[in-house]
């Protein structure tokens, strides 16, 4: 029915897209692992980052890849401030409240962007989306290859940060045992905010890697964040390798169900997996027992 080349190309494309999904999911899983909440504002913040990339490129002609360092810094700072001064104080330490506060933020951000930019869809100028690389029998988008490599690199850097630095140790300590961490002198509120900042920094990188081949509108983050939720649940909430493998897997699933079921039902595969994992094995493939 489908020639092996087409299926192979769909798998490779799925893997490439999946790596960027994994990057978005990485930020989400990091926040979940430490703060034990799902950050519903994750999608809206990704949209923000994508608009920032688009704005820098359109207004000042800054290349999306060159925008990575400044945007990472800005989004880290923004995430830090959001957690430290808004989400933390407003939720009074209650998990359900934190969930609702991030939902409120996401509604405000998404519609703020809608009010400013309207619902038009925008993309970057230039032909980056059409440059291809020959890989055996396949033609692969160059920007997607860069996205794939970039996402893996960021995941590796994050892994190094968590395992080798003092801040990383503190983050893991807070994730494991909040009270114990406080007793040995770790400033838990600071670590919460750093973690949230790191989650947002992942989004900034993801936005820079996505924009050359993707488009942005005020609601674009929703599509990604639902996929990211699935990945995080699948990989086990709080697990970095889980998010990475989950992302690649979901990328392939999406591209395969798009190939076999068509575009409108293609998303369905993801949600079905999502619900099944939640119902049957909510700790995911790599997650620790809750």
């Amino acid at each position: 029915m489908y020639s092996p080349e087409i299926v192979l190309e769909a798998v490779v494309n799925g893997l490439l897209t999946g790596a960027v999904y994994a990057l978005v999911a990485l930020g989400l899983t990091l926040v979940y692992g430490v703060l034990h909440i799902i950050n519903f504002a994750h999608g809206a913040l990704l949209t923000c980052a994508m608009f920032a990339v688009w704005g820098l490129a359109t207004a000042f002609g800054i290349d999306p890849y060159l925008a990575i360092p400044p945007l990472v810094l800005v989004f880290f700072g923004m995430g830090y401030a959001l957690q430290r001064f808004v989400i933390g104080p407003a939720s009074h330490g209650d998990d359900n409240n934190m969930l609702l506060v991030t939902l409120g933020l996401s509604i405000a951000i998404e519609n703020g962007l809608l009010a400013v930019f309207h619902s038009d869809t925008r993309g970057l100028e230039g032909d980056a989306a059409f440059q291809v690389v020959q890989l055996g029998p396949m033609l692969i988008s160059r920007a997607k290859l860069i996205g794939f490599a970039g996402a893996l690199l960021v995941a590796a850097l994050l892994w190094l940060l968590l395992t080798t630095t003092d801040t990383g140790k503190a983050i893991r300590a807070v994730a494991r045992e909040k009270l114990g961490a406080r007793l040995v002198g770790i400033d838990v509120r600071h670590i919460y905010a750093v973690t949230f900042g790191l989650g947002c920094a992942c989004l900034a990188v993801a936005a820079c890697l996505l924009m050359p081949t993707y488009y942005v509108n005020p609601r674009v983050g929703n599509a990604f964040v639902l996929v990211a939720f699935t990945i995080v649940v699948l990989g086990g909430m709080g697990s970095v390798p889980g998010a990475l493998l989950g992302g690649l897997f979901i990328g392939v699933v999406e591209s395969m169900s798009g190939l076999f079921l068509g575009d409108s039902l293609g998303q369905l595969g993801i949600f079905v997996i999502f619900i099944l994992v939640l119902l049957l094995r909510p700790t995911g493939m790599f997650g620790a027992k809750a």
């Binding site: 509604i107 405000a108 703020g112």
Partner: peptide, 11 residues
């Protein structure tokens, strides 16, 4: 303006 009321709702 589309969205203004929802910004308020979120806040």
């Amino acid at each position: 303006i589309t969205g203004v009321d929802l910004v308020l709702f979120g806040l």
